[in-house]
């Protein structure tokens, strides 16, 4: 019974993990840049929702579209100012410089957040915050279900977007071979711009759920960045479809694992999974094992 509860809870948390990871995976898959400020953007989404709630009394699920819009605009600016100038560097330098710049961005964003909003954790408590119901002895919170539902909707929307629209197909093409994609008449810079904005928007959505279920702090981005990175590595860098499944896997592993070793060491499970993946399946568990290693 406890195990089933753990599995269900793990799935729900895993959906959030997957959501948190998509943005990171999208930017890396399309542009090959690693945006380690991703965690900070997640926090920013949470803060946006928090302030809309605190100042305008808007329920986070209602203010979600507005938060998404804010994050989308932020993503556009982020790409234009920080990522676009990276295109002049050679392929090897690009990744390294993206790491450096986004690290610098973390410093700017996190410290600005501390200055503006202090480092005290912020979270949103609504009427339905603790509410749950029981099915067959399993406890399900409304927020948990809502989050899971949101994640599923987003995954489906993303899938349709990638397979049915020309823009989505362009993204898939660029992820495989950007030069060939440009020869199709695809405007690489524009695609990068919109993909980045989308990625940041998705990060913001994750942030909204996080500020509801947990809390946000200026430096809280790092741990969510790690989770997103573990999920993306598990799914395989550049493999967008596996991310949701990988998130679920991580969530369930942590939930079940913490039954054995206690919940305060949950993070260790995540790192262990990362280590195992990197050692034995560096291309992700969903990609067929290629000859050689992850180079």
């Amino acid at each position: 019974m406890i195990v089933t509860q753990a599995i269900i809870s793990g799935l729900i948390i895993g959906a959030l993990y997957g959501l948190a990871a998509i943005g990171l995976g999208l930017v890396f898959g399309v542009m090959k840049y690693l945006n380690i400020a991703h965690g900070s953007f997640i926090m920013l989404g949470g803060y946006a929702s928090y302030w809309l709630f605190a100042l305008l009394h808007l329920d986070p699920f209602i203010s979600l579209p507005l938060v998404m819009l804010i994050m989308f605009i932020m993503g556009l600016i982020f790409y234009r100012i920080l990522l676009a100038p990276l295109s002049k560097f050679s392929e090897d330098l690009k990744v390294n410089n993206s790491l450096l710049i986004t690290f610098g961005l973390i410093m700017v964003v996190d410290n600005s957040a501390t200055l503006l909003w202090t480092s005290w954790p912020k979270s949103i408590t609504t009427l339905y915050s603790g509410a749950a119901f029981n099915i067959f002895g399993i406890r399900l919170t409304y927020i948990g279900l809502g989050g899971m539902g949101l994640a599923i909707v987003i995954i489906l929307a993303l899938h349709l977007f990638l397979t049915k629209t020309y823009f989505g197909k362009a993204i898939t093409a660029i992820a495989q071979d950007w030069e060939a994609a440009s020869l199709m008449g695809i405007n690489i810079d524009y695609t990068y711009l919109i993909s980045c904005a989308l990625a940041i928007t998705l990060a913001g959505v994750a942030g909204v759920l996080i500020v509801l279920c947990y809390s946000v702090t200026p430096s809280g981005g790092f741990s969510w960045l790690m989770i997103a990175f573990i999920v993306v590595t598990l799914a395989g860098m550049g493999n967008l479809y596996g991310i949701f499944a990988a998130g679920l896997l991580l969530g369930v592993s942590q939930a079940v694992g913490s039954l054995l070793i206690g919940s305060s060491y949950q993070g260790v499970i995540g790192f262990a999974i990362l280590l195992l993946t990197v050692l034995f399946r560096p291309d992700g568990i969903f990609t067929r094992k290629r000859k050689g290693y992850a180079r």
Binding site: L34, I36, V95, N96, L99, F222, S223, L225, M226, F229, T233, M237, G267, F271, L274, L275, V278, L279, P282, Y293, A294, R295
Partner: peptide, 23 residues
């Protein structure tokens, strides 16, 4: 473990160590 692979794994590995150590 990390220097055998692409640079991003090294960077994230060092980040993870730093986070863990800090905690």
């Amino acid at each position: 473990p990390t220097l055998r692979l692409r640079g991003i794994y090294f960077s994230m590995g060092t980040l993870a160590i730093a986070m863990t150590a800090e905690i």
